[in-house]
Amino acid sequence: MIKGLDGLRAVAAMAVVAYHINFLARSGTGPVAEAAAVGWIGVDLFFTISGFILFLPFARAARDGGSVPLRRYFVRRARRILPAYWLNLFILVTLTVPVLMTTGRGWSIIASNATFTAEYAGLPSVNVVYWSLYCELAFYVALPVMALAFIRRRWIAGLIGAVVVGCAYRFAVVSTVDGVDSYFSLIMQFPGVIDQFAFGMTAGAIWVTLERRAEPIRMAIAMSLVAGGAAGVVLIAWVIQRSIGLETYWSGSSDWGPWAIVTLRPLLSACFAAVIIGVCARPSWIRSALELRPVRYLGLVSYGIYLWHLPIIRGLAEEVEGRGRSSAFYLVAFAAVMALSTAWAALSYHFVEKRFLGGGQRPAPPAEPTPHVPMPEVAARS
């Protein structure tokens, strides 16, 4: 297990929950509400972490002269994402929108959600957060091919290629599609987010290089990566949120023209890639905080939190509507939603997901980059 990574997953999940609390109190006031309003960056962190952790087996195999069995890779990806997803879909359909099962269009919606194609087919998602899982699945399929462009010393060319593809796609959408109020649904799908995953893969390529070093990177370098990456995230989020405005950003109608929507979002992933390397590569007080048992557990069940938090928020909305939009309200609402979401996520993880993941055991890459020590062939296979 790479130390600090589960904690970063927890941070991403909590950021997204904080952002969606806005469904309970639009136009909230106070510093807490303003901080929560940029919680959408949690999805960008999730994408970067996915690119990082999923590329590592491919990078390590190429370094050591081996290969990743694709059948095992795809089976494991399916076991990781499908059981919890289908459970969430089944419960939401049967408990909240059973009317879908009474019409032909309703069954089309259910089928497209179950097969991760709703966004591409122009059909509504039963759970709005499903859109990012469609991106994840597309990345899973593309990764074995993308990995060929990132292994060994080719990662610079691979990153440039992914950035060119992603930017070209987003520019083409903004330039050619008319009559929409928001480009979100078109832009935030594959290949519109390919470069966000690619920055995570770049972090993975650098990580595998660091594993061969006789000494880990210096603390000053690690902390500079964290500080620089975090500062970049804050700056980019501020530009999108306050200088441009989210609605103007997604409509492409700001003074930046199409360039804001083409260039800014992937830069967040570049900054998060620096944070991942800086946090995970060396012990520090930041990593120690992320390694606290409650934080790690939230990261462990973060997929379930992500799936369940928005239905819970919508369920609570009727109960708390009009009861205040202060910072205190946000904190209470956040605590309630996190508690309920974590409970559902824990049930999903322990009773469903672990059964398909071999008891929940994960591959155990080194906790931090360590010197590469050649091993006898027999020992290496044991």
Results as ranks from 00 to 15, higher is better:
I236S: 00
S253F: 07
F190K: 04
I41M: 10
F90G: 11
P57H: 01
H309Y: 04
S327E: 09
G39Y: 05
S185G: 15
W40C: 05
P311H: 11
R154F: 10
D255R: 13
M223E: 13
I2V: 14
P294H: 08
I277C: 00
F23W: 05
M219V: 09
V352P: 06
G200L: 02
M14G: 13
C135R: 03
V177E: 11
I160G: 13
L45H: 03
S253Y: 05
G359W: 02
R80I: 05
V180Y: 07
S182A: 07
E318W: 08
I21S: 11
Y169R: 02
A13P: 03
T117H: 10
Y349A: 08
A157R: 11
Q189E: 11
S341G: 13
Q196A: 14
F334S: 11
I110F: 09
S269E: 07
A335M: 12
I49D: 02
A25W: 03
A111F: 14
P216D: 03
Q361P: 08
W131L: 06
W238N: 15
A230C: 12
V165A: 09
R26F: 03
Y249M: 10
A237K: 09
Y249C: 02
S175T: 12
I261V: 14
L267A: 12
V180F: 06
A15M: 13
R76N: 14
T248H: 12
S302V: 06
V11H: 04
A289F: 10
S288E: 15
L133G: 02
V233R: 00
L347V: 09
W207C: 05
G30E: 01
L264Y: 03
L100W: 12
P369R: 06
I313M: 09
P371D: 02
